[in-house]
Nucleic acid binder design. Structure first.
Lengths: 355, 355
DNA sequence: GGTTAGCACTCAACTCCCCCGAGTGCTAAT
DNA sequence: ATTAGCACTCGGGGGAGTTGAGTGCTAACC
């Protein structure tokens, strides 16, 4: 059941007006914008049908109409015209990205910052190591005899943890331990090694402590429930939107955003390399039920994907947000994995959201 | 010019009432709370004198009075009774801290979380490496031939950075480079080594790139302008206070909090090991001019100090906040540097703030 | 002289009421 | 199918009036 063209045009005009003004849209307002004039009464008839179809809602009887989630969905999928990112914008973007993005550590926090800045929304940046990268080796770097940094090397990344031991461990013992640990890791028998050590050594023993921490960390890195890296930037921008004037609402959302674990779950599903949009109730987390989450994936390297997105009111300017976000993601992908970027968004910036 | 006892009692009562209710305090309200009854007229006389002295302000003529910053200062310095942390609270605190605090990486983020949770305010946690720790050695851990983790070991800490090279660097070259770098670091001639390399190698060369990044990082770690590590937790709690119902204000403050660099400056000055309090305009940053910052320092180890604190409205419950914060800091110090804790707050939790 | 009762005064906040106007739905004419 | 017209709805804005908490001041009291 396709919507007839005029209804589509009217709905489009309503959504755009509401995106711009955040005010309920009345029939006269719409009647004014068409080249070939239509009377407001006609619009009213159309609007009342659109309401029956579930695309519009009335806050109250004399207040004009407001788009429903279904309207945004239709708008995004079929009505919206793509926003063309100007070359000026691209240049500013590239300038902002040029520096500081060689270090993998920084890429997420900077991506997050840039996205927030360029879209003027709150951004999230998530790095998802596919299926828990397997740890290939561990290296113990001595700081002093009570302190070691353990460096965990995976297929394509490394991360370190500084550990303060309960009792000293001389350097030669540490290198023995390191060898043993790596042997065990190679044979996938790390747990056995640790429980063996646990039998031999007193609790509080430095080597045992280290080994336990290493095991713990390996489990964390390899496990399913590894917490993805999450950055949020520009949270304060939420408060720019009139829908969060209510501090109650704003607080709930900020609360959500500070829960990294929860935010990390946003990236749980399969995410295609296009700009995805989850509008209002399409979000699984109830606290996101009246915001929209616009996001995309990019490759950091063969095994690691980044996800960047923005969170804003359902009435956000989707066209512009999508265009800018995809421009950023394209740049990120190129920067991160050299020139063999895998990010292939159609030029138009066209988007089909996924529930 | 000491304030006479009765005025002090009245002022104390006013501050406490305002802390509790956030409503301007009238003379009758106060008249009610004294054991030996005083008429409201008398209170009015006293209040009008306290106003002349600069301790009270009137929002408007018929609205009761509100404490000035000077009143809070006096309250905190002389009037406030210390809050006794209950054993139940201590137990909950210890339980919350018991786990996860062995790892130096985590201590700040957890400290921050715990402080926010136990004080019900927004917390900040800053780690300040005194004077820029000097880097003792660097270790290059190979992930693959295009990717290395550089581990920087200082007197008492280590941190790593994952670097993606523009061109491959075989492992043996990396270990040569590592040796050269460490030699140069030992002789304090790292810049010379790097500029030497720059002459020999083409730009884009892996070793040169690595060396440059290492130099950059060493400079960052040793430099004066090293950015302190900063964590903020519970930012959303700000919105619980009625003074931030105005989204404008709330946003400015949230903005401030997301500027790590600025927040890091909070710890710039010498900070004694007591609970410090900066009330309203005593804060140097203008954006903090009507909040209070309550904070304390604790030792992470010989060279590294942590600062934890909370940011809240000037009308916060100082007694309780101070007591809980100092309890947490005491625990942290003990946990972090074993049993030789340097944190010596007087048992009472007594506090003398410093501008 | 310090304290207090009493009283006039102030002013934000609340309520009540009215009106305006944007917007709707329906009907009848085109 | 479209549109002009009209009655109707209802939120919001703008006084006017009222309330009540609170003040300052004065005069009496101990």
């Amino acid at each position: 059941m396709e919507l007839p063209e005029r209804k589509r045009q009217i709905l489009k005009a309503i959504v755009e007006s509401y995106i711009e003004t955040a005010e309920p849209v009345g029939s006269k307002m719409i009647a004014g914008v068409f080249s070939q004039p239509i009377s407001s009464a006609t619009i009213r008839n159309e609007m009342s049908e659109l309401e029956e179809l579930g695309f519009l809602e009335k806050p109250h009887v004399s207040a004009g109409r407001v788009p429903s989630y279904a309207a945004y969905r239709l708008y995004v999928d079929e009505l919206m015209e793509s926003y063309r990112v100007t070359t000026g914008e691209i240049e500013r973007l590239q300038a902002a990205m040029r520096s500081r993005l060689r270090e993998l550590d920084n890429i997420m926090v900077n991506a997050s910052r840039i996205v927030s800045h360029f879209t003027d929304h709150t951004s999230v940046s998530i790095v998802d190591r596919a299926g828990g990268a397997s740890v290939r080796k561990v290296q113990l770097v001595s700081v002093d005899d009570m302190t070691y940094a353990a460096v965990f090397v995976t297929e394509n990344d490394a991360r370190s943890k500084v550990l303060r031991l309960p009792s000293p461990l001389p350097g030669n013992e540490a290198s023995l331990l390191e060898r043993a640990l790596n042997l065990a890791i190679g044979q996938r028998r790390l747990p056995e090694l640790v429980s063996g050590l646990r039998m031999m050594a007193a609790p509080g023993n430095g080597a045992l402590f280290l080994a336990e921490k290493v095991l713990e960390q390996v489990r964390e890195l390899e496990g399913e429930n590894h917490s993805a890296d999450v950055y949020v930037d520009g949270a304060a921008r939420l408060l720019n939107n009139r829908e969060y004037q209510d501090p109650e609402k704003a607080r709930d959302l900020l609360d959500y955003l500070s829960d990294r674990k929860k935010v990390g779950e946003l990236a749980r599903d399969e995410i295609p390399y296009v700009v995805n949009i989850r509008i209002g109730p399409e979000n699984t987390d109830p606290r996101l039920r009246d915001v929209s989450f616009v996001f995309t994936a990019y490759d950091l390297d063969e095994r690691t994907r980044g996800i960047v997105g923005v969170i804003g009111p359902t009435r956000m300017d989707y066209a512009r947000t999508i265009a800018r976000l995809s421009a950023i993601a394209r740049q990120l992908s190129r920067l991160a994995s050299g020139e063999n970027a895998k990010y292939k968004l159609k030029e138009s910036g066209e988007a089909h959201g996924g529930k």
